[in-house]
Design a protein around this nucleic acid. Structure first.
Lengths: 342, 342
DNA sequence: TTGTATGCGTTATCAA
DNA sequence: TTGATAACGCATACAA
């Protein structure tokens, strides 16, 4: 039972545990860290004392003395964007046996302390860092801390470890899926940022190769549902005969669907719609949005693996890999006019 | 510029800064903590040295020596559930000037270490804890750490500080909104758990007071989209003439809408639908789900305020408050048959 | 206004 | 297999 002894002002320390178990503090430390060469009798005594005292080791003292925190930090842009949840899931799976602790911070979390996530993690002395947000220009240039960039391509020095989705390929695959359904007048709703640009380039290349006209809207707009809705509305004015819309992410696909509905166009009856990221949103039974899975869980696995390697060998050559995305077909895409006629 | 000196194996310490600035370590410490009684000349010298060395104070050493971490922990169930994002936003607003650092952990994050979030935070020696997940039975009973429960009602001892939404009232307001639109055959899709039960009781009380029949489905089911879809399908079999469905949360409302669509029923043309929580999902232009705002941002403000009070006065009497929710009307609810006739 | 000394709760090194 | 003991990097009296 975790019962706190009555008279104690402050929390029990390793010293209290040692005294209660009738051993030295060193022995307690050994038991805590699972050292093999400890007699069963002593180990049991220590464990019992720990339990009785409700003792919890101080991570602060441990990391100060041990020169490492056994923790890794994950810097994300914002908690709203759910792709990092899958990334974490993958990381956890890989980190399972290692004893590493994971902490997450977004850009805003401690902005009141004038701390960007990286500075915060540096103060925390994390053993490694996962950069799961777009780094500012130059911030990675001489970061003397083991790190790997996850899911970003912009502002990443060539010497950085990097695990990301192949967004260009994803753009090609999405467009290919629509072409395969018989669509020809396929428009793309893009937005600002490096990731959107890559997805867009995949779309453009595939359309050109197929001999169809490239129609892109939303350059420099935010990658939000609202902006995508506006872009799509403008698109429908200029190109009323599009039969498919590929949006740069799932939320933007929702925006496109809202604009289509406003015009009285059915999905997928009149127009097929695709998103990107395969968020939980897309998987919703109600929405059933066809999307591109960027395999963020697998990205998490690879990211953790890469970071572990980097921590154990800081001078290893940079490791870079792109994960192949996958189209997840649901209910918002259907055969286009060409396929429908015969 | 943050440039690391070439020869140094490890990170610069307060000692290095002191030496470079030509002062003692204590002086550096004073500057760091913004102590007023430091001459401008020295202060500038220290700041400059910090910048040149790229020095970041070790939180571990600071908290070990200072007997507090200046950090507060937020324990959540899972990152997927976005209501905590607004809670954090509110907390940050209140914590702005205090210098407190916020860290978030979900139940799974470090489960591979056999650490539940509370144990983790105890090891971290956070100065305070926000319990934003349903506590296990008894875990709060003798938690000797300043904490406040946010948004939960189950398993909360009467002596705990608590800030939560008034879910019963919210259930009443939702039902009242539908009644006000002229609906009478209103069903409720509930699920397992204390929060859902409170919302359900608000629905029941209001229906009874209005003299209408209570129709509830989904008891003991998970509070997920999928389960809500199944429950709603069963509901429509048993009660084909319902004109409104109130779901215990937004995701479940989606499930209900999927089931309605499957029956060929339009929303809100044939059936009105309401959710609860007013998640970003509900606010989406495409969905436009009428929902109940539980005011999680304000909850964050109150929670932080309460926790600060608790930290500074551990023996203060328990503080409990319920926030009044608000119905947010969007496009999934419309006048019912009674109102439509005249 | 600034410097000195002590201790925080661990890990790690060395002896025993 | 176990026990002393010296760091670890900083805050905090206390002294100057």
């Amino acid at each position: 039972m975790t019962s706190v002894q009555p008279g104690s002002r402050s929390r029990p320390t390793i010293y209290d545990v040692a005294q209660r178990a009738g051993v030295s503090k060193s022995l307690v430390s050994l038991v805590l860290r699972g050292h093999p060469n400890v007699s069963d009798r002593r180990r049991r005594a220590v464990l019992e004392a720990i339990d009785e005292l409700g003792y919890r080791p101080s991570t602060a003292a441990a990391s100060l003395a041990g020169h490492r925190t056994h923790s890794i930090g994950v810097a994300i842009e914002e908690f709203e964007n759910l792709w990092f949840v899958e990334l974490l899931r993958g990381m956890r799976q890989e980190l399972h046996a290692t004893g590493y602790h994971v902490t997450v911070a977004d850009r805003d979390l401690n902005s009141h302390l004038a701390l960007d996530p990286i500075d915060g993690f540096r103060s925390l002395r994390v053993d490694g860092l996962v950069m799961a947000m777009e780094p500012g220009a130059g911030v990675l240039d001489d970061l003397d801390l083991p790190y790997v960039v996850a899911g970003q391509r912009e502002n990443v020095p060539g010497t950085s470890d990097l695990v990301a989705g192949d967004d260009t390929l994803g753009g090609e695959m999405a467009t290919g899926h629509l072409l395969g359904l018989g669509h020809e007048r396929i428009a793309h709703v893009t937005g600002a940022g490096g990731t959107a640009a890559l997805r867009c380039s995949g779309y453009e290349a595939t359309m050109r190769a197929a001999g169809h006209r490239v129609v892109v809207v939303g350059h420099d707009e935010p990658t939000t549902e609202l902006a995508a809705g506006r872009s799509t509305a403008a698109l429908l004015d200029a190109e009323p005969d599009v039969t498919a819309v590929f949006a740069a992410n799932d939320l933007m696909a929702l925006g496109a669907m809202a604009a289509l509905r406003e015009r009285g166009l059915g999905v997928p009856g009149d127009v097929s719609v695709m998103g990107y990221d395969d968020t939980p949103l897309a998987g919703s039974a109600y929405l059933g949005l066809t999307s591109v899975d960027d395999r963020s869980d697998e990205m998490g696995v690879r990211t953790a693996r890469t970071l572990l390697r980097r921590i154990s060998d800081p001078s290893a050559p940079p490791h870079r890999e792109l994960l192949e995305p996958a189209v997840v077909v649901r209910t918002t895409t259907a055969p286009g006019p060409r396929a429908a006629r015969p």
